[in-house]
Every structure is written in structure tokens, then in C-alpha cells.
């Protein structure tokens, strides 16, 4: 219930922010009847309406349940990982993006595999660095050597592993 109230609020805030951002769109002499801002503004209003409807529906359901003296339904148990845990994984991915231009592809991807495996509960043993380096070698061979993708060589080693 609370979650739907919050979701409705977020939708309205998002719609407002998006509507305000349409003010940054420049006018064009080539513009048609609707213009570059036409659809975005319509979408913003539609999203705000959906947000309001979600809040109204949630309030209506809560009110009806109270009138009928229906006991509160306990919140359903969340599926999957809790938010901080999931965000931690995302931060490791973010660190990879930041380190990539500096360390280069090979080292960054080795650190990424090792860090994620460790974060996900892999034991501290020789397997962890071996798997990380083995994985990095595999991906480096596939992406850089086989597919010819120009992955960052890294400023630290001056492209030693490119």
C-alpha cells in the first residue's frame, strides 16, 4: 500500500521534472504543428495523471478496506536481494567504468570478476585470483584479439596489454 503511494508520488515528481526540462528544448524554424516539445509535454501530463490515479486508487482501496473492517494484509515478502546488497553490486560495476580508462581492459575486468565473486560470497583462496585472471584472459582473447574490439588499453601501463 505504502509502496503504491510512494510510486505515485515518484511518477508525479518525474513528470514535473521532465515537463520543466522541456523548457530547455530550442525552437526550430523547421518545426511542425506539434513541435519538438509537443509529445514530451503530453507524455509528462499523462504520467502525472497516471501517478495521481495510482495514488487515488490506493487511497480508495485503503478506505474501502477500513470501512469493511478488513484486517491489514501483511506486506508481501520482497523477492530477490535487498536494496543495499543490490546497489553494492552496481557500485562495483561503477568502479569498473571509472577504472577502465586508467587500468585498461585486462586489469579492470580481472578486478571486476574478482570483486564481484568475492562480494557474492566466494571464499578467500587461490581460486579467486586464478578465476579472475583466467576470466580476464578469456574475455581479452575474445573481445580484443578475436573480435578486434578496441577496449581501453589504460594509461597506467601505456597500452602494454592492448
Amino acid at each position: 500500500m505504502k509502496r503504491d503511494f510512494l510510486s505515485g508520488g515518484v511518477l508525479i515528481a518525474l513528470a514535473a521534472a521532465y515537463y520543466i526540462a522541456t523548457g530547455t528544448i530550442a525552437e526550430s524554424t523547421l518545426s511542425d504543428e506539434i513541435g519538438a516539445t509537443g509529445l514530451p509535454r503530453l507524455l509528462a501530463m499523462l504520467l502525472a495523471f497516471i501517478g495521481l490515479a495510482l495514488i487515488a486508487r490506493t487511497a480508495f482501496v485503503a478506505l474501502a478496506a477500513r470501512r469493511a473492517n478488513v484486517p491489514q494484509i501483511p506486506a508481501e515478502e520482497e523477492e530477490g536481494a535487498p536494496l543495499p546488497r543490490a546497489v553494492g553490486l552496481l557500485l562495483i560495476g561503477g568502479a569498473y567504468v571509472l577504472l577502465l580508462p586508467f587500468l585498461g581492459y585486462f586489469l579492470s575486468v580481472a578486478l571486476l570478476i574478482g570483486a564481484v565473486a568475492f562480494y557474492e560470497g566466494a571464499a578467500r583462496s587461490w581460486v579467486l585470483p586464478t578465476a579472475a585472471l583466467g576470466g580476464a584472459t578469456l574475455y581479452w582473447a575474445i573481445f580484443v584479439k578475436l573480435l578486434g574490439v578496441h577496449q581501453p588499453a589504460g594509461s597506467l601501463f601505456q597500452g602494454w596489454l592492448s
Partner: peptide, 30 residues
């Protein structure tokens, strides 16, 4: 599973980089 997760995330981020050779795509995907 921990190793699988590491390899899958590395595959996702390495693969996405091939689109435009841009770290921006990786940040956006995250």
C-alpha cells in the same frame, strides 16, 4: 554462483562497450 555472477557482469559490460566504444553506455546501463 559468485563466480558465475562475476563472469556474467564482466560479459555484460565488455559487450556493451563494443556498441560505441564509450564508457557512457556502461554507466547508462548500470
Amino acid at each position: 554462483r559468485p563466480y558465475r555472477a562475476g563472469f556474467i557482469l564482466a560479459l555484460i559490460l565488455s559487450g556493451l562497450f563494443t556498441l560505441n566504444n564509450s564508457p557512457f553506455d556502461l554507466g547508462l546501463a548500470l
